[in-house]
Simulated scan of single mutants.
Amino acid sequence: MSADLSTVTEGPFAGWKRAEPGDTFNGLIGAYYYDTSDPTRVKVGFQAEKRHLNGGGSVHGGCLLTLADTSLFVFAIPHLGDGAAVTLQLDAQFQAPGREGDIIIATGEITRAGQTVIFGRGELRCGDKLLLSFTGILARKKIKPQGDA
Results as ranks from 00 to 15, higher is better:
138 L>H: 04
147 G>C: 02
106 A>L: 06
53 L>A: 00
108 G>K: 07
45 G>S: 05
135 T>K: 14
122 G>T: 08
8 V>M: 03
71 S>N: 05
127 G>V: 03
115 Q>T: 13
14 A>L: 01
46 F>Y: 09
63 C>D: 01
148 D>F: 12
76 A>D: 06
145 P>T: 04
39 P>S: 05
31 A>V: 09
54 N>E: 07
89 Q>I: 03
31 A>L: 12
14 A>R: 05
110 I>N: 08
52 H>Y: 05
38 D>F: 04
134 F>R: 10
66 T>Y: 04
108 G>L: 07
22 G>Y: 04
119 F>T: 03
120 G>C: 05
119 F>I: 05
96 A>D: 03
116 T>W: 00
65 L>G: 10
4 D>K: 15
68 A>E: 05
48 A>P: 12
143 I>W: 00
149 A>I: 13
21 P>C: 04
66 T>D: 12
129 K>E: 15
48 A>D: 13
39 P>A: 03
70 T>R: 07
118 I>M: 08
7 T>H: 02
147 G>T: 06
120 G>W: 02
74 V>Q: 12
110 I>V: 11
27 G>C: 13
45 G>K: 05
111 T>V: 12
26 N>C: 13
25 F>R: 10
112 R>Q: 11
95 Q>C: 12
28 L>N: 09
37 S>P: 04
118 I>Q: 08
117 V>P: 00
132 L>R: 08
89 Q>G: 07
36 T>A: 13
104 I>M: 09
70 T>Q: 11
27 G>Q: 14
89 Q>E: 15
62 G>R: 10
120 G>Q: 06
5 L>I: 01
52 H>R: 10
23 D>E: 15
105 I>E: 14
70 T>Y: 07
32 Y>V: 11
127 G>F: 01
48 A>V: 11
91 D>C: 01
106 A>I: 04
99 R>I: 00
57 G>H: 01
46 F>D: 06
84 A>R: 14
13 F>C: 04
1 M>R: 14
78 P>R: 12
68 A>I: 04
114 G>S: 10
39 P>F: 00
88 L>P: 00
25 F>E: 07
24 T>E: 15
55 G>L: 08
17 K>S: 12
87 T>G: 08
149 A>K: 13
118 I>W: 02
87 T>S: 14
141 K>M: 12
11 G>V: 08
115 Q>C: 00
35 D>S: 10
123 E>Q: 15
120 G>K: 08
103 I>L: 11
10 E>V: 02
88 L>D: 03
77 I>F: 07
133 S>N: 15
57 G>Q: 07
84 A>V: 02
32 Y>L: 14
110 I>H: 05
115 Q>Y: 02
70 T>P: 00
34 Y>N: 08
134 F>W: 03
33 Y>R: 06
24 T>L: 15
40 T>W: 00
53 L>R: 02
108 G>S: 09
